[in-house]
Structures are given as C-alpha cells and as structure tokens.
Design a protein around this nucleic acid. Structure first.
Lengths: 97, 97
DNA sequence: ACCATAGGCAAGCACCTGCTTGCATGACAA
DNA sequence: TTGTCATGCAAGCAGGTGCTTGCCTATGGT
C-alpha cells in the first residue's frame, strides 16, 4: 500500500536515475544521514560528483515517491530509506524463481 | 543474474514509462502476443491509444532491458515476459514486511 | 550582534525521451 | 507476380529531466 498522494509512476521514475539509486544504497547502508553527509559519502564511496543542489533535488524526488522519509531537528534534516513503495513492483509481476 | 549486455540502468529506465508497464501487464496476462495483438489489447483493456510505432519502440526498450523475449515465426514475432531482471530491484534493497 | 553552517527556492540550459511521419523490408496468399 | 499483412528503420519535433547558477532563509556558535 502506497502512502497517500504517492503515485505508482513516481516510484518507477524515481528509480530510473542512477544517482538516486546510489542515494537509496547509501541510506540503506547508513540510515538517518543529513544532506551533507550524503554528498560526502556519495563522492567517497560511490565515485559520484554531484553538487549539493543536485543531491537535494534528487532527495525531493525520492521523498515524493515515498522512498525516503525525513525528520527535522534544528537546522539538520535527517533522511531515512523506506522500501515499502517497492512492493508496487514486486506485487505487480510474478518473479520467476 | 542479468543476461549478457543488459545494464542495470536499462531495467529501471524501461520500467519508468507507464505504457511499457502496461505492456508487461498484458504479456503477463497473455504470453506470446504479436505486436498487433498487443496494440489491440492495450487499447481495449488498458485504455491506451498508442500507435503501432510507439508500441514497437517500447518493445525494443523492454527487449533491451531483458524484460521481454521474442521469437520469430515467419512474418510473426511473438513476445514473452521475462521477469528475471526484476531481481535487480528485489535483491538490491531490503523490502520491509 | 556577527558569522558560519545546513538547507531552500527558482530561473535557465543542454540533453534525453516518447511520439509522429514516411518509407522500406520480408512473408504469405491468390 | 501482384497485393496485402506484419514488422522494421530513421529523421524530426515537442515536452520532460537533471544540472547549474545565484540568491535567500534559518539555526546555532562565539
């Protein structure tokens, strides 16, 4: 079940970008990162060269798809992975064993 | 495991289009359809209005992603769904129960 | 107060993508 | 062969997407 306001197409579109998939990888490996933590680790561990604004925009897309949840604390914003929308994929087509 | 020549990004990009997802739905429901069968059923059952060329190009993308396999018989080309590449998604992120 | 830090907003731009359009190829029937 | 049916190929175009650039807001430390 998708959260209210999240369209199925948003999930698939969000997954279509390699940088966004790397962000999901990073958040799975280390949950609750801030924007700057993410940028640093994306560069050092995934070889990406994305700027702050680029990563920020990707996070907006991921959040719009329900794949990333956020919480604010002071001037920090922490990001967490939410894989629930991926059920839209696994429940839709029978995956051969 | 993905077939040789299929990149992970191709699978995600292929899934990013709603018409292509409808094609996968159709092939799951009825395997081995020709191009014209697909067009007819996409229109009548999914409310789409895609032309032959549009669907043909979508099938190329899906085949390039390994999600659709084809076999030729005379002047007919039959299409089948192959969900194996979807493991690239389910194996990558832990999906919460 | 002052400044640095963490993040947000928005316009502009180059590239990509899906679709159309028109023509071509190959298989089968009469 | 002639015609038709199923499909393939390729150029062009409009809209979308990812990214940059520049400026702004807000929080917390000193």
């Amino acid at each position: 079940m998708l959260a209210y306001g999240v369209r199925v197409g948003d999930v698939f579109k969000a997954l279509a970008d390699p940088t966004r998939r790397a962000i999901l990888d990073e958040l799975q490996e280390r949950s609750g990162q801030t924007l700057f933590e993410l940028i640093t680790r994306l560069i050092s561990r995934h070889g990406l060269t994305s700027t702050r604004q680029a990563v920020s925009q990707h996070l907006e897309v991921l959040e719009g798809a329900g794949l990333v949840r956020t919480r604010r604390e002071g001037r920090y914003k922490f990001h967490e992975l939410d894989t629930a929308p991926l059920r839209a994929i696994t429940d839709r087509w029978r995956i051969d064993p």
